[in-house]
Nucleic acid binder design. Sequence first.
DNA 1: TGGAAAATGGACCAGCAAGTCCAGAAATTG
DNA 2: CAATTTCTGGACTTGCTGGTCCATTTTCCA
Lengths: 208, 208
Amino acid sequence: MADAFTAKGRATRARIVEGAALVLREQGVGFTTLDDIRGRTGTSKSQLFHYFPDGKDELLLAVAQFEADRILENQQPHLGQLDSWESWQRWRDVVVERYETQGDHCPSGALFLHVGRARPGARAIVTELMRQWQAQLARGMRALQAGGLVSADLDVERAAAALLAGLQGGVAILMSTGDSTHLKAAIDTGIEHLRASRGREGPREGEA
Amino acid sequence: MADAFTAKGRATRARIVEGAALVLREQGVGFTTLDDIRGRTGTSKSQLFHYFPDGKDELLLAVAQFEADRILENQQPHLGQLDSWESWQRWRDVVVERYETQGDHCPSGALFLHVGRARPGARAIVTELMRQWQAQLARGMRALQAGGLVSADLDVERAAAALLAGLQGGVAILMSTGDSTHLKAAIDTGIEHLRASRGREGPREGEA
DNA sequence: TGGAAAATGGACCAGCAAGTCCAGAAATTG
DNA sequence: CAATTTCTGGACTTGCTGGTCCATTTTCCA
């Protein structure tokens, strides 16, 4: 917490984390060495261990946290403003576009899929990320309910959990196969599920 | 293809692959050495390279294929017989139960999430696995359509893609956080989506 | 301004893991 | 049954990688 670093120190530390994140996204955790990171960030071995005394594990954890924060940031402001069908659509487009262009090396992949297991610290980071992500989706769904756009009977937490799972799986499949069909299908179907929940009136008008 | 192995050779090779699969599930790709595999399978270094001349990569690929085959097998006969709501429910229970008990070390995780990127060979295996999986889900949905249980208007491929994504994401989250809520929510919601598609009649009776 | 603390450079070390090699045992086959 | 091939054991090599150490420079602050 209380960092005994000077301004210069903090800058260097940040440079290391950001550079490491880049390398990790490209190469994957299993194929990245400290020397790769050293080279990319223009630092020396001693700096790495100066800022991360516990070595690689600590650095990896810092990168995981850094990436986790960025993932939600990258979806703003849309993710925080899901109160109309249009805003949901915008959010959907941002997510799809982002992951499609990032393709293989995206933050969540590197972090979530690889670091996921193993270290308990990483697990905590992922768990917290999922919790916040789902909370924001659920909040958006409640906003729709408040506007009468979605049935008040809808189990919001469950719908949000399902949508989040679909999104994650879509990204995972995109990263493994290069195909974004599943990601789009998952999100669109999830949103349609919300639309359809609204009582018994015909749930079709606005088209994807 | 044409293996120049004797019966004994084939048995040894199979022993290596199966044993390696076990170790890989437990430890993850990044933390498994050839010596671990050697120890577990009771083989020598030269045997490993005798049966997998290209070394670790080739062995890992063989394990990936082995696991991919098992994943679909494990869901049978249910996955091949999805022609009623009851059979869908049975399949759902099998999947949830299997992944819940397997927890961290499940075949698809080790294979899919870790090997996924990197080697192009692994990517092909994953792609083919996803293709087959989705095809079987789609086939089940068409069976429901044929029985009049699901609207003929349903875009079966898209619904199957979405369900598959939800399942994958649910498993990924389960493996990363230890919580199966998302997996259940994703599958159940996916099935409800099918139910709800049937015309305009009230889509609620059987509860999850 | 001068001493302490922080920051940096990079040589060095130790362990480990993939892969090589060859000798010898088991088996296949003509 | 002898020759050839396959199979197995395990010592050895080689390269890499995380981590240590200490000397040097820069920054801080009283």
